[in-house]
Amino acid sequence: MSIDQTETVGKTDSSSVESDVLDIIAKQAKVERATLTRRTALAELNIQSLDLVEIIFALEDKFDLEVPYNANDPRSAGVSFENVGDVIDGIAKLIAQRDARKTA
């Protein structure tokens, strides 16, 4: 895999989260998954606003969580959608928060 593993993605089963996120982004962007790295910017993949909304929908469905993303105020989500690594980390964070709430 060509993924740069220098950063950890949280204590949830990180490799499977990463793998699922990559699958979802690759599918939406219609690119080979192997061409994606953590540093790939979503803008480079020609992801338009509706594509991003579809990616978020797919992520929510896959991981059964809510991503509080508002297209008018993207920063409110607490997850950056700048590049692939941001998405992986953001989703890992949301999974950890969700699990913390479940065990609380």
Partner: peptide, 8 residues
């Protein structure tokens, strides 16, 4: 909600 354009 799914369209992500609604003001809270």
């Amino acid at each position: 909600d799914a369209l992500r354009v609604m003001a809270p």
